[in-house]
Write a protein that binds this DNA or RNA. Sequence first.
DNA 1: TATGAATGAGACTTCATTCAT
DNA 2: AATGAATGAAGTCTCATTCAT
Lengths: 187, 187, 187, 187
Amino acid sequence: MTETERPLRADAARNRARVLEVAYDTFAADGLSVPIDEIARRAGVGAGTVYRHFPTKEDLFRAVVEDRIRGIIGEGRRLLTAADPADALFEFLRSMTLTWGATDRGLSEALAGVGIDVGKAMPEAEEEFFAMLGELLRAAQQAGVVRGDVSVPDVKAILVGLQAMQSYNDDAAKRLTDVVLDGLRPR
Amino acid sequence: MTETERPLRADAARNRARVLEVAYDTFAADGLSVPIDEIARRAGVGAGTVYRHFPTKEDLFRAVVEDRIRGIIGEGRRLLTAADPADALFEFLRSMTLTWGATDRGLSEALAGVGIDVGKAMPEAEEEFFAMLGELLRAAQQAGVVRGDVSVPDVKAILVGLQAMQSYNDDAAKRLTDVVLDGLRPR
Amino acid sequence: MTETERPLRADAARNRARVLEVAYDTFAADGLSVPIDEIARRAGVGAGTVYRHFPTKEDLFRAVVEDRIRGIIGEGRRLLTAADPADALFEFLRSMTLTWGATDRGLSEALAGVGIDVGKAMPEAEEEFFAMLGELLRAAQQAGVVRGDVSVPDVKAILVGLQAMQSYNDDAAKRLTDVVLDGLRPR
Amino acid sequence: MTETERPLRADAARNRARVLEVAYDTFAADGLSVPIDEIARRAGVGAGTVYRHFPTKEDLFRAVVEDRIRGIIGEGRRLLTAADPADALFEFLRSMTLTWGATDRGLSEALAGVGIDVGKAMPEAEEEFFAMLGELLRAAQQAGVVRGDVSVPDVKAILVGLQAMQSYNDDAAKRLTDVVLDGLRPR
DNA sequence: TATGAATGAGACTTCATTCAT
DNA sequence: AATGAATGAAGTCTCATTCAT
């Protein structure tokens, strides 16, 4: 019933994957303001090829960031089931800050709304992300390890703050993340 | 000790001050990516005049941000003497986040290292800023209201995080700033 | 006499016809500046297929326009035999302007030499077209309804003017075509 | 009371004039689709200079075409007073077609609405142009040399047609302009 | 043969910086 | 010193044409 999108030809799929991979790395290393031409150059393709797969720069952002966010959502859900639900939220925020944030500048920018508005560009992913955060938050609150007056958008705001802190000083972040997160615990 | 800088002619000084003032407001409102031409236009001078006083855009950033940082340093010292030293650090961070941060986009960007690297661009101001932060921190630690294992760079990192949180969601920041700061208190 | 062109395979012939048909409609509706990719898409074939049958965009123009011109030539000859020869020229110019011109932007452009030079691109068709026009003109002149000092190229130029007038203001053209054509009658 | 637009600096005025002059010639010779870079190159300035004086391509069109149209309006008014009012309209259309049209492809395109919509881009000039045409038409109709059922838009449409005819075949136009215009006379 | 992916030369536009007036 | 005009290197995106599959 959905449109049958025929699979990409092998070479095209390879190129698309290559562009996406290069875009991942480049955005991660240098942020979202890298020129498309630079990405094309690093991928060893013409600029037109990038534009064939991703008609605007925002489409490329979307593809990269959406993939990342889905990975993050998966990570969150995995923690929900695998780890102690009480600690899952803390685990998640710690991992987002110290693992993902430390290696992906583009992702941090996207989450902070710099260069792309995730809510507008991919509302579904945003929604799923918030839903997942909600589950983590609820579990933590029910276990009594997080204050009851904290909302999901609050957690997102905290995350943005943690990532900014991490970008600014990775070393300090390693020690401070838990300090900040402690603020979320009931007194 | 210092180079002999002949004093500016009166009109030149006036122009410099005017440019700086306009740059303050403009960077505060629109961030650091505003074109120089726009600043010149709003200041009612030619672009060349801006470049005479500030040979590169970064020099203008530096001047604006340095001035801001000096203001902030003053604010910190004032709190140290005027307020209860125990609360001065919390007061300061709250004010930086909710008052300055909320009205000065350029400053937030600068503190977060977007567009300019404060440590490299104006080491002296950075140093004084850190010194002031150190006094606030020491007072708070001596009063026993802040954990002993927190360093000055840690406080700066916290500040950057708070401002990013504020930029992202002003509403949440109003409630969460104290929550985050609570994390700094001894358990 | 002619080069031995092996007949197209059935499916190739079908594709060629399909492309041509889509190109007709598309050029008619949107003019000659439509991208080839768009035509390929609408025809349901790959761009390469278009280029196999028409090695350059101009070749496609040529094919479309030549076909149109052959249709027009047929129309002229039909009028010569079916209608009163004296009125056939006027009928023809009226029909070209108000019927063909009004529905075929690409044809108007082609006749006016925008995007393609018919005389250079398809001399044979041009020649036949002129021959047909000559017959219409001669008949009209012999009937005494057109000035004797008007040549075939003159009639073509008049036609181009009429079509431009029609493109510019269809409403005015409906009233003015006969006014302009009146100029051709002997005083 | 009106904004005081300070006069351009001498060198800027020279450059602006040079760009405009080159644009005149280039548009006249090659039509309105010439790249801005090409105009800059021929004028011996950087592309940025063209954009300083004419922020968009349409602004440059406007400047060139508006100047031309004002010239034309002047020509029309001159004919109204200098020549026999009865013949002024015919003189004007003849001149537009055989003198201006023959040397200015860009103007013909503009009048026909190709590349720029004069009515939208410079409504005042359009209005003045139509007003002037109206005066010419009224004078001719009062003198009894033009049919009473012809309107100002009709005259404009005729003009577009004549210019297209001229573009297509200058030689024929020389003989046919009067033939076409004869159609406007009462029978 | 058909496909549609890849190419790469531009097109328009912006803006930090330099320089003639 | 001040002015604001000029420069030219990007940056985003389009499209006729070629070519691997």
